[in-house]
Design a protein around this nucleic acid. Sequence first.
DNA 1: AGTACACCTCTTGTATACAAGCAGTCCCGA
DNA 2: TCGGGACTGCTTGTATACAAGAGGTGTACT
Lengths: 247, 247
Amino acid sequence: MTATTDSNPYNRTMSTRPARTSRRTVYDELRRRVIGLDLGPGAPLSENELAAELGVSRTPIREALIMLAQDGLVQVFPKVGTFVSRVDAQRVADAQFLREAVELASLDDIPAVPDPELVRELRDNIARQELVEADVDQFFVLDEQFHQGLLRLANHGGTWPSVVAAKAHLDRARRLGLHDRPLHDFTLQHAQVLEALLEGGAAQARPLMRAHLRAVFDDIERLRARSPELFAPSVGQPTRRNIAVWE
Amino acid sequence: MTATTDSNPYNRTMSTRPARTSRRTVYDELRRRVIGLDLGPGAPLSENELAAELGVSRTPIREALIMLAQDGLVQVFPKVGTFVSRVDAQRVADAQFLREAVELASLDDIPAVPDPELVRELRDNIARQELVEADVDQFFVLDEQFHQGLLRLANHGGTWPSVVAAKAHLDRARRLGLHDRPLHDFTLQHAQVLEALLEGGAAQARPLMRAHLRAVFDDIERLRARSPELFAPSVGQPTRRNIAVWE
DNA sequence: AGTACACCTCTTGTATACAAGCAGTCCCGA
DNA sequence: TCGGGACTGCTTGTATACAAGAGGTGTACT
């Protein structure tokens, strides 16, 4: 699970602890399911069912769903139902665009002599990426730490939550394919970006970074060409599920 | 007020109407108050008081506050209180960075022959800006329509919600100053950006756009230099207000 | 005077009850 | 056979009751 969701630096309070409310737990869990496609695009979500399953009342469920709706991961139709958002090609493209814009622009703001402590963390991160064999989840955690680290290098770590929000839609689209491109391709790209950055600055790192980000998006676009039905436009409102089962 | 908040194109459903729930009304109202500084940074928000004032129960109030918390406009401390977020200099800088990155990058994606209908709208928008005398709110609406229009020109209208979220923090910071820079300065910059774009493409428009966006940020930075106390870091948790008043 | 401590009132978090509405089903009638 | 309308189950929206904790306040004791 990507535990970096709430790494919003502005929501830290330093003096008070994380305050793990039930709502937060539900939010994290549902977000994980949506991004991980345990809950497929268009799937209906019943507040009552979720409440029963997760062992809490409707209140924290509702509040978590509201947060997910703000993230664009679910859609709430009053008096009708709540549904996992469809994977919309336009939305995925917008997410890619935003992420690319922010991450590329941040390269220009990285100081000539970057924070050595952060650089050390990044190198260490890459070293650990190289040790990952096939654990995709583990790799994703490291991948997120790496990209967030680059933003922090530019002193723009505060934009990470926005990037993560966009990334959620990209990750979901990517998982539709299930294809297992070798993880080491990405690790190599990460290493190349970092070295180019430290050697030649933003000018040299930029094209590599763009290529790296585009590699992910190109995977998605290939998938879309192959299986367009997965990217049905989200305009069609969902149908109510048939429940029945008086058991 | 800027009514463009819910212009998220993905949340449209075409078939169902906007569904104006009470929660939405409360959210819009509180957001307006926070950005308009009717509710100053650090101000305490009591769910009970708001419920009484706005004539609804705690439920829609809570849910609206949760949405505002996700926007970073308020902070909720469990069992302690809810407070309007401080205007944090780092956060404002991050918002500026994100907005700049997205809006500048979008220029590169504007087609050589842009949608003539959208161009007409943009020209019309500028014409109306020129007619605005001193109505700041009216100007803000046109300003947002203009910037959103440019994004749509690049077929990246879907990123507008993210830009608006960042812009909220910028606007709030800007209002701390209350200074009335002539609106026509901005109108002129808008016109110059659009003309440069249509004449010479992204290459010519980019520096003008950057200058325009920076002009706003520079105002904020000047204000910060003059009145640093307004930008107190948000780490310090607020103090509980004294209520008393047995009346 | 200073300090420890019980208290008391506020806060948000959670659970539950009720309201309102959409939509599929089923039955009845033409 | 086909159409229409009441019915019935669900859905989310809102209101309210209760739980649990944080922290200011005042008092009593040293």
